[in-house]
Simulated scan of single mutants.
Amino acid sequence: MSPLQLLFQGDAVHTAVALILLCMSIAAWFVIFWKSWLLQRALTDVSRSTAAFWQAADVTAALAALPAFDREGLVLPLVQATQTQGAGTLAAAGDRGQQLTRVLRDALHGVLQRLQSGQVLLATVGSTAPFVGLLGTVWGIYHALISITGGGQVSIDKISGPVGEALIMTAAGLAVAIPAVLAYNVFGRLVARLEADLEGFALDLRELLLSSPKAD
């Protein structure tokens, strides 16, 4: 009998735990593949977009050139935010430096929120899947011992089979959790690297616009 069949051969609680682990695994692997693709593109986009911006003649030319390089929309929103000041509103209150700090901070938060999407799910799966699997193991061992006790004579042969089947749930929980934890840590480092690059660009952009008022 295969491990998959063993997971689903128990009672309703045992089967429910197996289904939960299966759903958690599918969700985690979907996020892993999606974020791998997203962050790979993002690393390339940020490098190419910042290079294209600094090679442009002015901010207007940079805005026209960036869409070709910024496929994920990580750098372009920062530049666009500096071009909309909302004259006559509180958004335009304060000096030029305060306005740029505010709009760049808000744009940067929006970009980083997109980059960090999926991290909560990976962290949740990585931290809870082992305990979900352990619940299935405890439940399976409990019912295995009850059935063995009710059967009369107890032997190692009667105990080892059902208990071994129940322990598969613990292994299943770890198999779901370990990829999620590893992916969370790797993606966290990549997001932190992108965050540092974007924050540096935002700071440089602010200084540029402050020193060249006519650039925008």
Rank of each mutant, 00 (worst) to 15 (best):
L74Q: 01
G94S: 08
L78E: 01
Q113H: 15
A81T: 04
D58T: 04
A61P: 02
Q113V: 06
A81E: 03
V46L: 06
Q99G: 00
G94K: 02
F131G: 05
A61I: 01
T101I: 03
L134E: 06
T82L: 02
R114P: 07
L66D: 03
L74S: 02
A61T: 05
G133W: 12
L112P: 12
L134T: 09
Q83V: 07
T89Y: 06
Q55D: 10
A65C: 12
T50P: 09
L78R: 04
A107K: 00
V103A: 01
G88K: 09
A93K: 07
L78F: 07
G88D: 12
A52L: 05
A51N: 11
R71F: 00
T84N: 12
L90H: 01
T82W: 01
V120L: 13
V132M: 04
Q85A: 12
T128H: 05
T50G: 06
L122P: 07
Q99A: 06
L108A: 12
V125F: 10
R71S: 12
L112V: 14
L78W: 00
L100M: 11
R102N: 11
R48H: 07
E72D: 10
V125C: 06
D58A: 07
A62C: 13
R102T: 14
V111T: 11
S117M: 07
S117H: 10
P130C: 09
P77V: 04
F131A: 06
E72W: 00
R96L: 13
A123Q: 06
D95K: 03
S127V: 13
V120M: 13
Q55V: 00
L121R: 02
T124Y: 05
Q83I: 05
T50D: 01
V125Q: 10
R105W: 02
Q85E: 14
V111N: 08
G133S: 11
H109R: 14
T84Q: 13
R105H: 14
Q113T: 13
V120G: 07
P130G: 07
Q85P: 00
G133Q: 14
L121D: 08
A52N: 04
S49R: 03
T82M: 03
A61S: 13
G94P: 00
H109Q: 14
Q113P: 01
G126N: 12
Q119R: 13
A107N: 01
V59R: 13
L66C: 11
V75F: 01
Q80L: 13
V103M: 00
V46S: 03
V132D: 05
L90T: 10
Q55W: 01
T60W: 04
S127Q: 13
T124G: 14
V132F: 04
L63S: 08
L108N: 11
D95I: 08
A107D: 00
Q85M: 09
T60N: 08
A61C: 09
A87V: 15
G133K: 08
